[in-house]
Design a protein around this nucleic acid. Structure first.
Lengths: 348, 348
DNA sequence: CGTCACTGCTAATACGTATTAGCACGCCGG
DNA sequence: CCGGCGTGCTAATACGTATTAGCAGTGACG
């Protein structure tokens, strides 16, 4: 492999066309301001040479001079393409890619970020954030200190998912979990449920907090509204607990857990929703085989991705008046797992 | 949003540490050659200032000066994150990301490339290829002219999947379809099959050509070895055709088609592999529901992605002696759809 | 005391583009 | 013939980093 032949530059074009490098740049950028004029024949000559040589501007040099790149960074706190085939990031990326394509931006995945304590770090030696004009942050839990630093540095970014303040408000495009969960609770109350249990994932992410907040706000009207954490592996003991408490409906944050619960119930001869209603608080992020349509809501992941790019573009070009924060509504899914309490009593 | 405060540069560090910008650069790059020496105390002073200010080198400027970016471009001829979870690219991207992370490179997805005639184009005005040190090309069919141009420009790239010459040999990491198909044909012949049919996808991609070549090479020993194209929608007429020809085994390129064929056979009271053997020439690229384990082979997509990055890295740093071309073996899958011909005759 | 080698640093320049101040020229009006 | 103005372009510079030639200072050695 021979040393890369030096690429064609504006200087080369200039020499061939008998003009200055500046003129080439002016022609390329179609400048026609009052104080910049190029004779049509000169312009044509330059354009002809450009076409002949197949010249293409070096985006790196362009960025250094112009301060903009048309590159949008994407930082994921976990690998962007996990091996589990159905993955958490995919719908977001889909939306991000779609909108990036629309606005003519390339996407830079920060795969070079080193992993410390099982999590990628944005900031490290030889930090490369500035390669992009701005950055989209993806991940369930985002490090507060890193957000602080981003804010301090004035680096343009948008988080996907609502974030608490971190040395100032954090720009985000999130999903309105609180409202969605509140609606589900109200639906359950409407159907006559009085003893509720919320089964969280036991993590401290804002997304979890918002769901819980929505639950607590609406569940005040219930006779009993408990709250505990649960995983799929716990299914058996959790089910014991639900029965002991005479809860008639459970709001389950994690999809795998709700599937495991239903299966555990079936094994004991209990039917969903006849004997127990199960609501899912978000669609699956890992592939869990089930043929049951769970009642719950859908997270507008794709749309979140799209809007994140849109918002970021405005942060970058400075047209965002203040810190943009958007919450998108979650669509309720009418499944088959919400019934009325005491349905079982009717037919013993 | 206030105007971005000017970022900290080496000049700032230099001023604060009372040295020159060059010294800062030398310290940063840990230069300790014979002809470059920095006193330990000076080095420490500079490093201290760097730590205090949180300075991070501008990767754009670095690239302009150093000619390398540690950015690997990824060009996909279709959107990288397709919506019908039909994700052809995913396993490749997974391998690419994994290896990129390992070698400390970021990944640039060329989403800005415009779509003309339903296909993205690498070359267009304001072509941004040079942002990356090199590029990985993904897509079943890759435009020959664009490969020509890449070769001519001396741009470092690697195609995923074997490619025919295009104004010179094309660097690639592909799958050895020819050998895999040949093995399957030999297996079928061993089991006593004598009348074979190959069902292709009717596209001109190299991957298709290689499968067909492997088939033709090994099928010479058969009594009848036909070749035609078929899609899932054709299943019924294709089945008629197979029966009329008394073919006992079909080699099916497209996974959806093989699934449709089996279903069509079942509808007619025929069993696979008792009455007809069906071999799949590659794992699914679209999710097709089936509970049958097809005999065939698996394409090492993830490994292809990994090795593509590895090879590209060597092309970029010039350590690839000649044009690298690798074919990875496909793992044979022992499924339940290859039987012996005339199995049915035994029990009418 | 001149020469030489060695140390530790800096000045200068390159990378390729974008921008801006301003030059040279021709033309017109007075 | 001079001032003024519009036209069409160029020279110079900035962007932030990497590299290299070479300078000043010091000590050793003949």
């Amino acid at each position: 492999m021979p040393a890369t032949p030096r690429r064609v530059t504006q200087r080369d074009i200039a020499r061939l066309a008998g003009v200055s490098q500046a003129t080439v740049s002016l022609v390329l950028n179609n400048r026609a301001d009052a104080d910049v004029r190029i004779a049509p024949e000169t312009r044509d000559r330059v354009l002809r040479v450009i076409a002949e040589t197949g010249y293409a501007a070096d985006p790196v040099a362009r960025r250094l001079a112009a301060r903009f790149n048309r590159i949008i960074g994407v930082f994921t706190y976990e690998p962007a393409f996990p091996s589990g085939s159905r993955d958490f990031f995919h719908p977001f990326l889909l939306g991000i890619e779609e909108y990036a394509e629309r606005v003519g931006c390339d996407l830079l995945l920060f795969t070079s970020a080193p992993v410390v304590d099982g999590r990628r770090r944005i900031f490290h030696q030889d930090n490369r954030l500035r390669l992009a004009d701005g950055c989209i942050l993806l991940g369930q839990e985002i490090d507060g200190e890193e957000l602080h630093r981003l804010n301090r540095d004035g680096y343009p970014y948008v988080a996907v998912g609502r974030r608490d303040d971190a040395g100032g408000p954090v720009p985000y495009v999130g999903a309105d979990y609180a409202t969605a969960v509140r609606r589900l609770v109200e639906m359950a109350l409407d159907r006559g449920h009085r003893r509720l249990t919320y089964l969280g994932m036991g993590i401290t992410a804002e997304s979890s907090e918002d769901r819980r907040r929505g639950y607590l706000a609406a569940a005040a009207a219930a006779e009993s509204a408990r709250h505990r954490s649960a995983t799929a592996a716990d299914a058996e003991t959790v089910l014991d607990d639900l029965l002991a408490d005479r809860s008639t409906v459970a709001f389950v944050e994690d999809f795998a857990t709700v599937v495991a619960l239903e299966r555990a119930a079936r094994r004991r001869g209990l039917a969903v929703p006849r004997d127990l209603s199960l609501l899912s608080l978000g669609d699956p992020t890992v592939p869990v085989p089930t043929d049951l349509a769970f009642t719950g809501f859908r997270i507008p992941r794709e749309e979140m991705g799209r809007q994140a790019v849109e918002v970021l573009a405005r942060v970058i070009d400075g047209s965002a008046s203040d810190v943009p924060q958007r919450l998108l509504p979650c669509e309720l899914v009418e499944g088959d797992t919400l019934g009325t309490p005491g349905q079982a009593a009717g037919r013993p």
